[in-house]
Nucleic acid binder design. Structure first.
Length: 473
RNA sequence: CGGGCUGUGGCGCAGCUUGGUUAGCGCGCUUGACUGGGGGUCAAGAGGUCCCGGGUUCAAAUCCCGGCAGCCCGACCA
């Protein structure tokens, strides 16, 4: 896989190339022992994450939740209270057994998720129906000692937001879980990142340990494999019962609360890379581009330097994130390739030859298209181009996904279509042990939805829902 | 825990089958010159316990024995 790339180099996780690791993130190994798949996010990659984080945080607040912060360490006994929860997480816990030079009386678990600690506080904080709904979110890092870590997609430690809410009724809890799914998650993925996604809920087999229903957004990466972009769980009263989280209702009797939890992670950065990347590097929607425009000085020259600086100022005044690259001690070719790899949506190249005619070159990254633009027209050109990028990336990714999605009627057809993309098939058509048999072909049911793609409701018969079948990361 | 595979300058690798000059190559790095409109050219240079231990041999990166470490595939999963 040489320079310029022959095959898809960033659209498949297996092929995250070294240059990409130099730009966005790097997997690191523990000093001793097996690789634990921790990750260092480099400044450019972190800049992408920060922009996503700000957007997600804004939407969460719009949905009424407030940020809070809970401890990193959780007493082991908390995890053990909810049977399914402990069974689901026990194999992947990092456990602290010593502190202050002594063995601890009770081991502490490094949080894999915070349902249990937060519930220990909910049970104290929630007394009356007037305290409900309680809507909290925290930005935190969590640790899951997974068997097989993958850069961005499944790292041992990762950053996320986890929302935790308590409601008076099951209907309220469900409505809120769905509101998060739609207004925060689906909208962020589609409208903000330009990645098409399918929404639905998980089968019992794929459900979050401790939940009664797990909602999800499933997207297709550039190699046809599926990636879960987020989850929004209805927890029922499972945690309320073990933590005794009760409230006095309007009639004065005690009820258990109904709860939700939901999360979105740094995995999204990986998803962005794999959904939009091409053989020449990243392609970033302007919304998540740390620099939306880079103004390049082609060659050391007084007039060029002046023109570049004034273009920068003009574009910044127009509200764009602009970076000036006047490092003329590095060759122009090298610098332009570096910005291309980083996925900067628009490059404005100022060189003496064009400038003599009053022009600059504007390069549109995602189309790999360049044109000569008069100085006075740069501002308008950049503005209209930036406005198009996200929509065009979304259209491209949607066309790709649709071309790789097939509605089918039998198990065999589902295996065939699911192996290269998504197969949509009636769950009942897969047979009683359909999921086990799919697993033998490395396939899973990514989500369930109605035949028209809508979310299922309480009245739907599960066997009549459509299963989206695919390979997953 | 099963099934494959690999350890050689900073990174990626060739050499090992069939032992034999001074262990090579690409990328990166340093210096200089020419350059500069797409990871440019030329020249000079720095950088090596060939994973570790033992054995065979006149001679081991190469063959034999024993360790150690890591990677990939499956089970886990945001």
């Amino acid at each position: 896989m040489g320079k310029g790339g022959a095959s898809s180099i960033v659209t498949r996780e297996e092929d995250f190339p070294r240059w990409y690791q130099e730009v966005v993130a790097r997997a690191e190994m523990a000093e001793n022992g097996p690789a634990r798949g921790t990750m260092v996010i480099r400044p450019w990659g972190y800049g992408i994450w920060e922009l996503m984080q700000a957007e997600i945080d804004r939407r969460i607040k719009e949905a009424g939740a407030e940020n809070a912060y809970f401890p990193l360490f959780i007493p082991e006994s908390y995890l053990k209270l909810e049977a399914e929860h402990v069974e689901g997480f026990a194999p992947e816990l990092a456990v602290v057994t010593h502190g202050g030079g002594k063995e601890l009386e009770e081991p502490l678990v490094v949080r894999p998720t915070s349902e249990t600690v937060i519930n220990s506080f909910f049970s104290k904080w929630i007394q009356s129906h007037r305290d409900l709904p309680m809507l909290l979110n925290q930005w935190a890092n969590v640790v899951r000692w997974e068997m097989r870590p993958r850069l961005f997609l499944r790292t041992t430690e990762f950053l996320w937001q986890e929302g935790h809410t308590a409601h008076a009724t099951e209907e309220d809890a469900r409505a809120y879980a769905l509101r998060i799914l739609e207004d925060v998650y689906r909208s962020t993925v589609v409208d903000f990142l330009g990645i098409p996604t399918l929404t639905g809920h998980k089968t019992a087999r794929e459900r979050f340990p401790g939940a009664i229903c797990s909602w999800t957004c499933e997207s297709m990466m550039g190699d046809g494999k599926a990636l879960q972009m987020c989850t929004s769980h209805e927890l029922g009263q499972n945690f309320a019962k073990v933590f005794d989280t009760t409230y006095a209702n309007a009639q004065g009797t005690l009820d258990y609360v109904w709860q939700t939890s939901w999360g979105m992670t740094t995995r999204l950065v990986g998803a962005l890379v794999m959904a939009h990347g091409d053989d020449f590097g990243l392609r970033l929607p302007p919304a998540v581009a740390p620099a939306q425009v880079v103004v390049l000085v082609v060659k050391e020259d007084a007039a060029v330097g002046e023109a570049a600086a004034s273009l920068c100022a003009e574009l910044r005044a127009a509200g764009h994130r602009v970076r000036l690259d006047d490092r003329t001690d590095t060759s122009f070719g090298r610098r332009s390739v570096a910005w291309e790899l980083k996925g900067v949506p628009v490059r404005v190249e100022v060189g003496p030859r064009d400038l003599a005619e009053g022009n600059v070159t504007v390069v549109v990254r995602h189309r790999r298209e360049k044109k000569s633009v008069p100085l006075a027209g740069v501002r308008a050109e950049v503005a209209t181009t930036l406005a198009d990028v996200s929509r065009e990336l979304l259209a491209e990714a949607t066309a790709f996904r649709d071309a790789r999605t097939a509605d089918v009627g039998t198990f065999e057809e589902a295996v065939e279509a699911g192996s290269v993309g998504f197969a949509r098939v009636r769950l009942g058509a897969l047979g009683p042990d359909g999921e086990d048999r799919l697993a033998q072909h490395a396939l899973t049911v990514r989500c369930l939805q109605r035949p028209d793609g809508a979310l299922a409701g309480p009245g739907d018969a599960e066997q009549d829902l459509f299963a989206v079948v695919g390979r997953s990361y």
